[in-house]
């Protein structure tokens, strides 16, 4: 087996806790509780779970937005902790995140070209012309028409806005993309377009995905490995077909049984 692109050991993230000035205990929430994972390059790890299971907290730790309370994350073999300077730059060049809400993840006061050039300015040494060139190539790659380049986010539909978010994440050519519910806010016909784009990009660039969703059918369509989370813990993990066809944990079975399928009536 090749070296995993990302490997996490015993990750824990606690929110709250501590004591007030008067010494009373503050409530504590273990959002992520002892999670370990490892992802091979070019594959997709799907993470499923219901709201509050800690999947988004996990995404934020893996992309360096929040530090873990304890545990280690290794990216391409290098531990990440207290990123500074060049180390931080290299980290952001390797991992990028695509957000759930396409409109809230785009600055309403910036044009598409400013949004896409941002990471290129801060993380690469490209000059202005090269950046402009790269922005055009990115827009083409995610299927945005070139005349959109100077438009503002509110002029786009949800699906188009999500393409801008994907292009921004792709800008620095990361090897790992963390996708946090990237299609949940989209209509089904647009969702299919975006899922197709993810599949194409993966094939073309040998990207590694960490795909987080509450929608089991979507996770099944995109993942090679699957991890099921409940209340901050991993209850089941394994190859996709094994987990979906022969679930071992009761919670996985409950989840799978709850999904409504078009054209199929539940035995009631």
């Amino acid at each position: 087996m090749a070296e995993p692109i990302v490997e996490a050991r015993n990750l824990v993230r606690v929110f709250g806790g501590g004591r007030t000035w008067y010494g009373a205990k503050k409530p504590e929430l273990r959002a992520v509780d002892d999670v370990s994972l490892s992802v091979q390059p070019g594959t997709t790890l799907g993470i499923v779970g219901e709201s509050g299971c800690g999947k988004s907290t996990l995404a934020r730790m893996l992309t360096g937005l929040i530090p873990p309370t304890s545990g280690t994350i290794r990216l391409e073999g290098r531990p990440i902790a207290r990123l500074e300077g060049a180390e931080k730059r290299r980290f952001h060049q390797t991992v990028q995140l695509v957000f759930q809400d396409p409109l809230s993840s785009l600055n309403p006061r910036k044009t598409v070209s400013q949004i896409l050039a941002g990471p290129l300015e801060a993380l690469t040494d490209l000059d202005r012309t090269a950046r402009r060139e790269r922005v055009r190539a990115l827009m083409d790659e995610v299927g945005l028409r070139p005349e959109f380049i100077d438009r503002y986010p509110h002029e786009f539909s949800g699906g188009q806005a999500q393409r801008i978010g994907i292009a921004r994440a792709l800008a620095v050519e990361p090897r790992l993309m963390v996708l946090d519910e990237p299609v949940s806010a989209l209509d089904v016909s647009v969702q299919a377009q975006v899922l197709k784009l993810f599949r194409d990009l993966q094939e073309r660039r040998r990207l590694t995905y960490l795909f987080i969703s509450h929608d089991l059918a979507v996770v099944e369509a995109l993942s090679s490995e699957v991890m099921v989370m409940l209340e901050g813990k991993v209850v089941e993990a394994g190859p996709r077909d094994r987990v979906f066809r022969a679930p071992r944990h009761d919670y996985t079975r409950t989840l799978l049984g709850a999904v409504p399928v078009p054209g199929r009536r539940r035995a009631a």
Partner: peptide
């Protein structure tokens, strides 16, 4: 519309996105 919904248990079927808006 039916063709572009991912269906649980049929992960390998190709998702036929509807072009345009």
């Amino acid at each position: 519309l039916l063709a572009c919904v991912p269906v649980l248990g049929e992960p390998d079927r190709s998702l036929a996105a509807i072009p345009g808006l």
